[in-house]
Amino acid sequence: MRVSRTTRRLTLAFTGLALAFLYAPILTNFVFSLNSDRFPTIPLGGFTLEWYRLILADALVIDAFKNTVKIALIVAPIATAMGFAAAYADYRFNFIGKRLVLVFALMPPLIPLVVIGLAMLAYLSRIGLSGTLPAIVVSHIVLTSPFAMAIIRLRFSQIDGDLEFAAQNLGASNWRAFWEIIIPSTKTSVLAAFLLCMAVSFDEYAVTWFVGGLEETSSVRILSFLQSAVSPRINAIGSITFATSISLILGAQFLVLRRLTKDAK
């Protein structure tokens, strides 16, 4: 679009401000996790690792992190597999009510978390699961699989629909064609979806808090810390959380972008 240089500069500057606004809370969190003052404000105090030492000595925090990793490692493969299956089914087959199923599959992230939390809590306690790790796993799969489906479906939309049939036409059975064509074409986006599911599971706090009972993940631990008082210990846990989810998301983005630039060649 042709606009004056000033307009261009102003919008770009505003965009920079928006980025600063979004990253400011993330950056300050890292800063204060290393700041010696008990109350996080400016001017800064000295450098310290005390807060990390404190949380790493806290059995509740350690257990929460263990739970988080355990849950993410179970949730991500299952949610990715189911998201993949749904995306592949949408790409490959036609059946009645397909659109309805798709809309339904994309719904969970759009329902308020407390509402899902309440519904899940009521449902899972009816079937005797609430307050257990499986309860958290089950709900996380519901919350993450739509992301996996969306990201993998996007990849499928770039794949020539004839490829799989071309392989069959040359003698490959259903499964063989799937193995030879679909797997190589989608593997990076599957990995990206896997990382994204881990990140979403990692950061989920609301539904987990509802259905988890006494089982805590790191996000729920942060929630309980928040309910007490401001403390740099939260910054320390927060930094670990940020570092983890940012690495996962950047990894996913790298995979998707590499795919895009590769195709553009």
Binding site: P25, S219, T241, F242, S245, I246
Partner: peptide, 13 residues
């Protein structure tokens, strides 16, 4: 990136 990072911690910040 921020959309998928801990909203809780960002609010705390």
């Amino acid at each position: 990136v921020p959309f998928f990072t801990s909203y809780l911690v960002r609010i705390y910040s």
